[in-house]
Each structure stands twice: as structure tokens, then as C-alpha cells.
């Protein structure tokens, strides 16, 4: 690869790339093991607003994937890094299941607002509280800005609409921390001691995984599993470094061509 330095790290999306709901992508466990035998660091990156790292880890281990909790970096981890870096004390509008990823963060006398997916908190009273804080100068941090998601009983509003409403009320812009933000990818790489030009991202979401990673200076590999739909690779510019059938093919490409 002309102009690129040797590959040092591989970032891997979870849902849709390694597994679809409670089923592993065929051959994905073995492919991950083969990748681990090469001299590259591996990290698992995902946008989640309600699942703690421990939850994610347990699900993947049930599916026989070999990984550790410290290798998982989520949009909640990214929010936590930002809070630590700026020494903010957050009002956390996240579901209880996500709170454990913020253990140890001081939340007394909050001076920042963090919005995840939290239907229980998206009531008029709590949003008014968040609104008044932001109007008084507290920064608005969004885990991500998804419009809606699919629930068993139908579609349901995601955090995006409520973040957008708060932005309108206060005439300010939220800091978004999840994929496809550049900072998400650079933070995920930061403790591996490598630069974006030494890393590759594998995912099923053309915009959030591949486009975001390539925008941050990494290579992006799109897999045709999970949420992939025919033609997704042409929705981003520049196009993916590679589009392949599934995670094992992506690993094969890395082992053969990028090391």
C-alpha cells in the first residue's frame, strides 16, 4: 500500500458484522482467532446507548468469541472519555443498564448534559431541567443522533429527535461522540498507540463504520452482512477500501494484503 504505514490495528464492529442478534456470522470466531495470531491490535467498536460493555462482552462470549472487556470501545466509552477529559459532571439521560459504564464519574451538581437513548428520561420535566442547564452554559453531549430504532412493538424515537429539539431550544450544537464522528475513531485508537493511517475498520454500516473511519484517515472494509443493502458501497465517497461478503473474507484480505 503506497503511502500507508504498516497496519497496526483492526477495529471491528459488533452487531451485523460479528453476529446478527443471537447468531454468529459463519466462520467469524475462527477468523477472529486467525487475526489474533498476526501482529495487530484488535478492538471492538460499537454505537450503543443502553448496553454496557459487560452486557456486550457476555453476549459475544456466549457466541464463543475470544475477547476481553478492555478491548471493547463504545459510544458510551467515548462519552466517558470526553467527560473525564473536560472534567464535566454530567446529568446522565441514559438508561439504567448503561449507567455502569459511568461508574466513578462525579454526577453531583451537574454541569453537562449527556443524552443517550432513555425513554424513561425523555419526559417534559427532565427535558426542561436539561434545557435550563444548557441555557446556563452546560455543554450538550449526544451519544449519537439516531432518528429512531426498531422495537418489538414497532418503531420508536431514538435520541436524535430529542437532541435536535434541545439544540433548537437553546440555539447550540450538540457534541456527538459515537460513530461516524472522527473523534470516536481516534479515541478508540488512542490507547493502542497507533495513528489512523495504521488502522483499518470492518463494519456493515457504509456511512457510520466505513465512511466515518475513512474520514478519520483509516481504511474501511464493508461487509455484506447485517444492515448492508445492495448498493450501499456507492453511497459514500471515497468508496470503501474493500467490500466483501463477510467478516472472514475481510480478515483474509487483511492477512494477505495489508500486513
Amino acid at each position: 500500500m503506497a503511502g500507508r504505514r504498516a497496519l497496526k490495528a483492526v477495529l471491528i464492529d459488533l452487531s451485523g458484522t460479528l453476529h446478527i442478534e443471537d447468531t454468529a456470522v459463519p466462520g467469524a470466531q475462527d477468523a477472529l482467532n486467525r487475526l489474533r495470531q498476526a501482529s495487530v491490535a484488535v478492538k471492538f467498536v460499537t454505537n450503543t446507548t443502553k448496553e454496557s460493555k459487560r452486557n456486550l462482552l457476555e453476549r459475544l462470549q456466549r457466541l464463543n468469541f475470544d475477547l476481553q472487556e478492555k478491548e471493547i470501545f463504545t459510544s458510551l466509552s467515548a462519552a466517558r472519555s470526553l467527560l473525564e477529559q473536560k472534567q464535566h459532571r454530567p446529568l446522565l439521560l441514559v438508561e439504567d443498564s448503561a449507567l455502569e459504564d459511568f461508574t466513578g464519574i462525579n454526577t453531583s451538581e451537574p454541569n453537562a448534559v449527556v443524552v443517550g437513548l432513555a425513554p424513561d428520561h425523555f419526559n417534559y420535566q427532565t427535558l426542561n431541567k436539561a434545557f435550563r442547564m444548557i441555557l446556563d452554559g452546560a455543554p450538550l453531549i449526544a451519544i449519537h443522533k439516531a432518528r429512531y430504532y426498531k422495537r418489538k412493538d414497532g418503531l420508536a424515537l431514538g435520541p436524535g429527535p430529542f437532541v435536535t429539539g434541545l439544540e433548537y431550544a437553546t440555539d447550540c450544537k450538540a457534541t456527538v461522540v459515537g460513530k461516524p464522528e472522527k473523534t470516536f475513531f481516534t479515541q478508540a485508537l488512542s490507547d493502542l498507540g497507533c495513528s489512523p493511517s495504521e488502522a483499518v475498520m470492518i463494519g456493515d454500516d457504509a456511512r457510520d463504520d466505513v465512511g466515518g473511519a475513512q474520514n478519520a484517515g483509516m481504511l474501511g472494509i464493508l461487509v455484506r452482512t447485517g444492515k448492508y443493502r445492495e448498493g450501499d458501497e456507492s453511497k459514500i465517497n471515497p468508496p470503501p477500501h474493500l467490500t466483501c461478503d463477510s467478516f472472514p473474507d475481510a480478515v483474509e484480505h487483511i492477512l494477505t494484503n495489508l500486513l
Partner: peptide, 25 residues
């Protein structure tokens, strides 16, 4: 965007209009 009541500022309809506009494009 908001209005004032004796117990403080309150979010007005525009905020939820924007939320639904964003959700449904």
C-alpha cells in the same frame, strides 16, 4: 422555543416540532 412561567423557563411547542421534523425528515 420556550416561554417563562413563575417557576422558570419551559420548553415550547417548537422544540417538539423540530424533534418530529428530524425523526420523520
Amino acid at each position: 422555543r420556550y416561554y417563562k412561567e413563575t417557576d422558570g423557563l419551559k420548553l415550547d411547542v417548537g422544540v417538539y416540532m423540530k424533534a418530529l421534523e428530524y425523526a420523520c425528515d
